[in-house]
């Protein structure tokens, strides 16, 4: 049986946070939204770059199945898309990338990894980018279509799988 040592550290972080002054939670979150706004262009650049990568992967695959590594790469780019859509609160892009993520995850372990369902999602991402702040109602039919596509490949529940809000 191995010995276990217990420590009760007082992290400096705790001490510093409780120093006088500072911001309330609402003020801090408003500050973060404001700071994020300053880097909107940079974020968009990242999104476009990732979308370009996804499109290149599915286009290069054509009619053949994707490799596991290619799907993994798509997933990583989907992650970046979602990483931007979440703090900027772009609801449609969020749902599309959530569906793309679930689809990619399902394809990773699938016997066949066709490129076309990912290509459909890439087109949806492009649409969502052009309508970044659209209401979900406007994108409803497209999102429903994506859910069907994703479900066909074992990624059901795409619409329910949002990120941590």
């Amino acid at each position: 049986m191995s010995a276990v040592k217990y420590h009760w550290p007082e992290p400096r972080l705790r001490t510093l946070l409780t120093e006088p002054g500072g911001k309330t939670r609402s003020e801090a979150l408003a500050g973060a939204a404001e700071a994020l706004e300053e880097c909107r262009d940079v974020a968009m650049e990242g999104v476009r770059e990732s979308l370009g990568e996804i499109e290149a992967i599915v286009e290069a695959a054509g009619a053949r199945d994707l490799t596991r590594d290619e799907v993994f790469c798509v997933l990583e780019h989907a992650e970046r898309l979602a990483g931007v859509a979440t703090p900027f609160q772009w609801p449609v892009l969020l749902q599309v990338t959530a569906s793309l993520g679930l689809l990619g995850d399902a394809l990773l372990d699938a016997a066949h990894r066709p490129a076309h369902p990912l290509a459909v999602h890439a087109r949806a991402v492009r649409w969502a980018l052009d309508h970044a702040e659209s209401a979900e109602a406007e994108a409803g039919p497209m999102l429903a279509g994506l859910e069907k596509v994703a479900a066909r490949y074992g990624a059901a529940g795409a619409q329910a799988a949002g990120p941590a809000a």
Binding site: G22, K23, A28, L29, A30, G31, A32, A33, E34, A35, L36, E38, C39, V42, A43, E45, G46, R80, G83, V84, P87
Partner: peptide
């Protein structure tokens, strides 16, 4: 780099 920038901007916003 993009993810890094977003996280840092959030932290900056917190103060």
């Amino acid at each position: 780099q993009y993810s890094l920038t977003l996280t840092r901007q959030m932290l900056r916003g917190f103060g």
